[in-house]
Design a binder for these strands. Structure first.
Lengths: 154, 154
DNA sequence: ATATTTGCAAACGTTTTGCATAGTG
DNA sequence: CACTATGCAAAACGTTTGCAAATAT
């Protein structure tokens, strides 16, 4: 019996939504497309990867935008609450990304870098069984692989 | 094409090691089997499930053991560092359990309860591919399913 | 005019630290 | 005796809150 072949590939820029669609959604919820809010979305859009609150704060600084910490945290809550970004707790910290095709993360325990990977969504089948057997309604899952990235292995 | 059938079952008490083996390991590392340390291990052994630092503190209180917070945190670090317990960060908090057969967790977003599930270790195959394709050496992974438990669904 | 967004200061919950004391092998 | 474990106080860390002022529609 041969092991099944899973598809594995890297993702680059691959947000599911256009920026305009995102802004429209914000306005449709009664929100305003402010400088900070817009910048956060663009930072996530440009980077194409998962970023911590702190990462985002740094990138805002690069853009000469210096919101108060609480403002930025509130923005992130607002955006996540309105499904404009997704929130993911990894190792005591919140990480954010724009909605994209189903994927998971490789977390380097050496340098704390996080990279995306796409593996076939084989958990979906298992989720159905888990829901049935445990009478537990699954909303989402989080799967991270911890290890050493290429640089840190050397 | 029929969906593959995955094995799903609940775990109860199922630590891989006997308590004596654990104590021996601690002594072999130059550690002492103190009151607090022993109690923490027994609490995890008895409960058979994953517990937060806070949970453990509460259970210690039930046993009339009231260590300082820092003592307990240091114990948990010591035990995890010596592979007597495993540490798992879920939603900004550390959770601990005794080493046991490979399993994952169902995290209820309603009541924050966490239950164990065993699913066939299908990730092992994928891990090999991920390691090869990404030149990333995987040490372990963490997989949690978030959703609503039976009680919270009602 | 009204609601949303912001800054500030202060608090939160969890975890870690430094240092002196107590306890154990 | 030398070393490990503990208590205490204080800090670190990421995040959240209340409230008043500023801003946008």
């Amino acid at each position: 019996m041969t092991a099944p072949v899973f598809e594995v590939k890297l993702l680059q820029h691959c947000c599911n939504m256009k920026l305009d669609t995102i802004y429209k959604r914000i306005r449709s919820k009664g929100g305003r497309v402010t400088k900070v809010r817009k910048a956060i979305i663009e930072i996530l859009y440009e980077s194409g990867c998962i970023l911590s609150s702190f990462d985002i704060m740094l990138k805002l600084r690069e853009l000469k935008i210096r919101p108060n910490r609480s403002t930025m945290y509130r923005e992130l809550i607002f955006l996540a609450h309105n499904n404009v970004i997704t929130k993911n707790a990894i190792a005591h910290k919140d990480y954010f990304e724009l909605p994209q095709d189903h994927h998971h993360h490789l977390v380097c325990v050496g340098c704390n870098s996080i990279q995306k990977i796409v593996i076939g969504n084989h958990l979906r089948e298992q989720e159905k069984i888990i829901e049935r057997e445990n009478k537990f309604q699954i909303i989402n899952h989080s799967l991270e692989f911890y290890g050493l990235c290429r640089r840190c292995r050397a």
